[in-house]
């Protein structure tokens, strides 16, 4: 009886130690992080994991001072990534699948984050990065703070009859349907997407429209996500043939938003939402004035 008891105590102790060992290992922070995802890079620096990051891709340009390299976030070279001897590699969905497979084959830890389907997904990705880098509390705080700011903006958005919007990705009039991260944000704002019929017909979340299709849809507000890449602005839109007849142009409800802010899902989500709300206010203001 006594020996059995002792044996049980030993086993229990061993299990406990093993358990502690495992959890210790889990909380060990990676110190050589390579991020090829500009969104993830922004989040890492916002949750205090910046010092653990040794290299980021050429598109990661925020915040200032990130260790930018010439690693590509589209066609990265496995060997070049492995050369940094990282203990954690963060990949966006744009990276081909065989890259992640190749990195895992050489024994590296890889987290691949696809574009989030909606805001909740984006907050979940922040928390995932927090857990993976040893900053779960800071990530939780960031997720909550971002969510609170976004919800405040949505609650303060002007109400009234439903407004139509056009979100422009480039001057060839590629846009985004509702079934994308950005599209879901507009949906939360109660806006109607003029690119949706095109997205449905073409079977793509990023359809290309013609000038005629946009002008005929007559959106109440236009958000330009091609201001940095392609120099588009309310002025250039106003000079496009036929666009002077569009409600958004007549009302002055055309706003430019930094391309990067409109295409990432990190701590700057509220900046984008604020711009969209601003466009709504401009459209509403014109409505009230007329």
């Amino acid at each position: 009886m006594g020996s059995r008891c002792a044996a049980a105590a030993v086993i229990a102790t061993l299990l406990l130690l093993a358990g502690c060992g495992a959890s210790d290992q889990g909380e060990e922070r990676p110190t050589r992080i390579v991020s090829l995802s500009p969104s993830a890079t922004e989040t890492l620096f916002a949750i205090g994991a910046g010092e653990q990051v040794i290299a980021v891709d050429e598109e990661s340009d925020h915040p200032a001072g990130v260790p930018r390299t010439n690693l590509s976030s589209y066609q990265p070279n496995v060997e070049a990534i492995a050369g940094y001897e990282p203990d954690l590699v963060l990949l966006p969905a744009s990276v081909p699948r065989d890259v992640a497979a190749g990195l895992r084959r050489v024994g590296l830890t890889v987290i691949s984050q696809p574009a989030p389907a909606n805001l909740d997904d984006a907050y979940a990705q922040m928390r995932q990065l927090g857990r993976a880098t040893g900053h779960p509390e800071a990530a939780e705080r960031l997720a909550r703070r971002t969510r609170a700011r976004v919800e405040r903006l949505i609650a303060a958005a002007p109400a009234g009859a439903r407004l139509d919007f056009f979100h422009e990705l480039d001057p060839d009039l590629y846009s985004t349907g509702t079934k994308t991260f950005i599209g879901r944000i507009y949906q939360r704002l109660g806006l109607r997407n003029v690119a949706d019929p095109a997205a449905r017909r073409a079977g793509t979340p990023y359809p290309q429209l013609s000038s005629e299709a946009v002008v005929a849809a007559d959106p109440d507000l236009i958000v330009l996500a091609d201001s940095e890449c392609c120099g588009q602005s309310p002025a250039t839109v106003g000079r496009r043939p036929g666009w002077q007849q569009v409600a958004a142009v007549k009302a002055g409800a055309v706003v430019a938003v930094d391309d990067d802010i409109a295409s990432r899902w990190g701590p700057r989500i509220p900046v984008f939402v604020a711009r969209a709300v601003e466009a709504m206010q401009l459209a509403r203001g014109a409505e009230a004035g007329s």
Binding site: E59, Q75, D170, D172, L209, S210, C229
Partner: peptide, 25 residues
């Protein structure tokens, strides 16, 4: 193109031909 992947869509769109945004100009 390979070194400026952020411009892929714009370049690709031009390569495939477009009349969609043309005007009298």
């Amino acid at each position: 193109l390979q070194q400026n992947t952020e411009n892929v869509r714009a370049i690709y769109s031009w390569l495939l031909g477009r009349l969609s945004t043309s005007g009298w100009h």
